[in-house]
Design a binder for these strands. Sequence first.
DNA 1: GCAATAAGCTTGCATGCGCAAGTGATTTGC
DNA 2: GCAAATCACTTGCGCATGCAAGCTTATTGC
Lengths: 148, 148
Amino acid sequence: MTDLYTTNALRLLQVADNFRDGLSGEFSAVHGISVNEFLLLLHIKRSASNRLSRVDLAKRMHVSASTITRMAAPMEKVGLVGREVDQRDARLIFVVATDAGQEKLSEALATFSKRASYLFSDRWEVDEVDQFASMLGRLIGGTCDTLA
Amino acid sequence: MTDLYTTNALRLLQVADNFRDGLSGEFSAVHGISVNEFLLLLHIKRSASNRLSRVDLAKRMHVSASTITRMAAPMEKVGLVGREVDQRDARLIFVVATDAGQEKLSEALATFSKRASYLFSDRWEVDEVDQFASMLGRLIGGTCDTLA
DNA sequence: GCAATAAGCTTGCATGCGCAAGTGATTTGC
DNA sequence: GCAAATCACTTGCGCATGCAAGCTTATTGC
């Protein structure tokens, strides 16, 4: 049949898909944002100075720069994020979270954590969760700016 | 900060994204198919009778029925899949893999396995891989038709 | 200094996808 | 038996996204 590496990779994709799908539904219904909008806010909050340039966001989120432009526009309109310019480099336009944006992130993060708990807590021992975290940490490696 | 469940879920999404992105690039460059087209072929191969109806495929792949219709059309045109009708129920249109489709799947599966090996083998002990498989298996649960 | 190159961002175009409506085939209720 | 409901599939429409081209601003080479 197929080796264990392959099986693991397939299951990894499947589990992530399932989780993301469920999350997407609850996010749009309860908070009115998409998973990617949530991740955008989260990346900003986890950044060093609470703001990120568009290309920086694009790299961290694994999307193109144009996607960031088109994601940020409606979020500005709704008041979740604002823009700041760099004094030194007029090319840079930072995305910052407004108070409303931070509030929205906080609510969405609660939903996220709730679903994460459902995923693990019922069927897992505490030390297994620890070990799983360490395994995932190694899989992420140093390849990208880590979110968690 | 954030609890371990949340961290794990974030990392899970991140690892899956990374893997899928890399896979997508190599698939389109080397095999000329998308990840979803690969998964479609794989679902058919893993099915009981080497063929699946469109709604069946949609459920297993977590996409809408219209997506299957639109994915299958170009794959038929290129000769990777064919269609079979059910004698009993004229509504059903099964998707089957042609010889070329099975060949393509086989090549793509080799690429997939190679990348899966890269992901795990360098940094993992054998029994860790075992344990990871069991953990992912529990995360998938009985919620959906399993692919691996 | 100034031309050439590069970086950050935006926009036009094409693609992939979900949702809702439509069509034809089958099952159900009575 | 037949009308109504259900199911499998397709199609029109809108949204999200990547790629390539273009614009503006910085940097580099000389």
